[in-house]
Design a protein around this nucleic acid. Structure first.
Lengths: 141, 141
DNA sequence: AACGCAAATGCAAATCAGTTGCATTTGCGT
DNA sequence: ACGCAAATGCAACTGATTTGCATTTGCGTT
């Protein structure tokens, strides 16, 4: 968890080191699911030491997203954007609708499909977001 | 197109018949891609005869969505919601990151995959959300 | 064919997520 | 330790969507 490590990580990405950025980074690292800017703000603000302004949270999330450290998505039904760490390897998750547990899925079912889709539509396909919802073995009982 | 037909359709869904609702319904029926409330409002307001208030458009879209007549989604990166007729079939969309246009994709690449995934993980798969981002032919130039 | 009332609409004001301008503070290279 | 560009805090703003309330409209009833 050391702040020394983070300084190095940030430098690699050309991101200036600040306490606020470390707090957001650490919070995102610990988060097991995509979260909203508001959630991050609320949580951090509760732990006094990491209090910061909401607009700063937005600015940091935008920065991290631009630098490729974080993934932003708009899939939420309520229209709020969510953010999560970019684990670099393209990944999808299986979400249990009962217990909300999230499990990463091995492999991506869309690799070939994307190629074909790009050819048939003449779009330059850049990326995709996929989440699969279901009920996990434990909750099925 | 007939308003007589629509009256019947509405009644089937328990929707009271009004000129505004007919106008929105007809406009959505003719639209080939998901559109925003604003777009519907602008278009209808231009054709004098169908002029109506923006909040009415929102209310009608909410109603249609609740009744299952229309699908709402928040895929747009710019935060606007889009609406389209519910053709009852499971659908995904291709979103242009430059112009934000949205095009429905024929077929779902995940049908078989879901079945296999369910077997291998022992999850009961319920549904999935997928958005594919790219650059459309027009914007590629 | 007019009547009455609940539901729908118009309008303006409110709300909510996210953004921006600007004064102040902080990190980092020298 | 110094100085300046970049980051933050704060408050005001934006743009999409929602809401309260007065007015209007659709539709079953007489």
């Amino acid at each position: 968890m050391g702040s020394i490590d983070l300084k190095v990580v940030f430098k690699k990405y050309g991101i200036k080191n600040t306490v606020q950025r470390q707090a957001v980074y650490n919070y995102l690292t610990d988060a097991s699911a995509p979260i909203t800017a508001e959630q991050i703000y609320m949580e951090l603000t509760q732990s006094e030491s990491d209090a910061m302004n909401l607009s700063t949270v937005y600015r940091i999330l935008d920065l991290f997203t631009k630098k490729g450290l974080v993934l932003k998505s708009n899939l939420q039904a309520d229209g709020k954007s969510t953010y999560e760490m970019n684990h670099m390897e393209h990944r999808h998750h299986l979400i249990c609708v009962k217990c909300n547990s999230i499990v990463p899925i091995k492999g991506c079912p869309l690799e070939d499909y994307e190629k074909r889709l790009g050819e048939s539509t003449n779009y330059q396909i850049l990326e995709h977001h996929l989440e699969i919802l279901g009920i996990c073995p434990k909750c099925r009982k």
